[in-house]
Every structure is written in C-alpha cells, then in structure tokens.
C-alpha cells in the first residue's frame, strides 16, 4: 500500500456547516401587520451554541428554502430561540405560516456581534429603524441585565406608522424605567397618535448622552443608518464608537457562497455588525 492510498481516510463524516438542526415552533406571535416572532425550541438532546447579541441564524423551511434572520431574544435565556422578521419573500412568508409544532431548520449562530463588552463604562445609544429593532433587542437585554456596567442607556426608535411599532409591551416597560430613555417616532400618523412624528434622525440632537463616552449601535435600512451616522457624528461622537449592522444576500453564512461580499468583507462572518470607521469607505460606494 502506498501513501496515496493511506491518505484516503476521508473527512466525509465531518460536520457540514450547511446542515441544520430541526427546531420545533413553540409559538408564532404577530408583532404588526407584516412582522412576526417565532419562538423555537431545539430538538431533544441538541445543545445549541449560545448566541451573542447581533448574531443571526439561517432559517430553513422544508420545501421552500433558507434565509438569514437575526436573533431577537434574550441572550441570557437559552431555553427558547426568538426570531422576529418581516414577510418580504417566499421563505419569510412560509415561516409566517408556521403553527405551533411545525419544524424549522436552524443553523448558526453566525456573524460578528454588537460589542457590548467594549461599550462598558460608556453611555449606550441604540438607534433602530423599522425591523432593525429586532437585532438590537438582544443587546438592549444585555445592557439592562448588566445595568451598572453602563452609563446612560438611550433607545431611539423610528417606525413607519404607529401600527408598525414592534415589541410595544416591551417598549412600554422600558419607557417606564428610570434608568433608560426611550424615544419613539413614526414617519406618518393619523389623528389619534399621541407620540412623536418625524424621522428617527430628528431624535438624535436631543438625546441625552455624553458625546465623549458614547457607543452607538445602529440598525435599520442602510440609507437610514447613513443619515443616523451623520447626525451622531454631528453630535461629536467618534466614528470608532459607532457600530452599524449591514444586510446582504446570504446563502451560506459561512464565507463560502460569496454573495454577501462588500469590498474586502464577507458580511456574514466579518459582519453583520461593523465598526463604522472600518466600513465607511465601502458604504459610500454605489452598487458595491
């Protein structure tokens, strides 16, 4: 037997990062007319990798396909996995149709998280636009659970209409806390809405934070993040204290499929959370 044959101990049995685990849908909860939260439990005997705030999973609907969705639950709660998403296509539509007991394939968690540990000692400003509140929520849970490690905690949240506001009971709870400032605004409202109207960037100039010791976590449509960053920079926050979460087409989430590239980055593994100064140059290039 020569060496070539000896080398034939194939790694065929090695774990395939593309292979999901089948989770059970415990509950599906409507958040607004087109958004919903899935509560998922892992299969018996499977120990999920704990996630960090800002990470995402690949969700697979048998017979339909797979898509990347951020995790919206509490990182300290390892019992149930929460995914909040909007119905935007075939996979999310199918996920929206899931009833308790359905199976959903999960692989992950993937991606670079919000650097909550690095933000310790600082004021933390969360700026969320639309569904962008979902990926920020685990980080909010984290800083509130470690409240003494942080300075002021501010949440600025912009939604399209009052009807589109996510996590309303939770927002009410956070608003009532004395150690957190919550400002919500909507782009348009009809009579009867007693809250703020105007874009989320309007909230930044008045938000209470110390510009020299602030970490800003921003998540929303890319164009909204662009203007939000400008406002925060305008308040005098250093660009190294600003983080954004980007969204790109992802087929594998492991850096193989190439779809999510943005300049030198694979958004799936170098991101989705990026420090602004590192990704600024690439965000400014059209159709990159």
């Amino acid at each position: 037997m020569i060496a070539a044959k000896e080398r034939t101990k194939a790694a065929a049995g090695a774990a395939d990062p593309m292979r999901p685990e089948l989770y059970r849908v415990q509950r599906s909860r409507r958040e607004s007319s087109d958004t919903f939260t899935l509560e998922l439990t892992p299969p018996r005997g499977y120990k999920p990798t704990p996630f960090q705030p800002g990470q995402f999973n690949m969700l697979y609907m048998p017979g339909v396909g797979e898509c990347a969705i951020s995790i919206s639950g509490d990182p300290a709660d390892d019992g149930v996995l929460l995914h909040t998403t909007r119905v935007v296509g075939t996979v999310t539509r199918a996920l929206n149709g899931c009833k308790a007991g359905s199976r959903v394939g999960i692989r992950g968690p993937y991606g670079a998280p919000w650097p909550v540990a690095e933000a310790e000692g600082n004021d933390v400003v969360f700026v969320a636009g639309g569904i962008g509140l979902a990926p920020l929520r685990p980080a909010i849970f984290h800083v509130l659970a470690h409240r003494r490690q942080y300075g002021r905690i501010v949440l600025l949240y912009g939604a399209r209409t009052p009807e589109d506001i996510l996590f309303k009971p939770m927002l009410r709870k956070w608003s009532s806390r004395l150690d957190m400032d919550v400002y919500v605004t909507v782009d348009r409202a009809e009579a009867g809405w007693r809250g703020n109207v105007g874009v989320v960037t309007n909230l930044i100039k008045r938000a209470p934070f110390d510009r020299l010791n602030t970490t800003a976590f921003i998540c929303g449509p890319e164009i909204m993040m662009h203007y939000t960053v400008l406002e925060i920079l305008g308040r005098g926050v250093n660009e190294k204290g600003i983080y954004v979460s980007l969204e790109r087409n992802m087929k594998c989430a492991t850096g193989f499929c190439g779809h999510c590239q943005m300049g030198p980055f694979f958004v799936c593994k170098d991101g989705p959370v990026f420090r602004y100064d590192k990704v600024k140059r690439w965000m400014e290039i059209r159709e990159l």
């Binding site: 790694a11 065929a12 090695a14 990062p17 492991t254 850096g255 193989f256």
Partner: peptide, 8 residues
Amino acid sequence: FEDPHYRQ
C-alpha cells in the same frame, strides 16, 4: 469554517 465536501 471548513467545507467538508471540498476537504474529502
């Protein structure tokens, strides 16, 4: 990550 299909 490692691609086991490539590796084998």
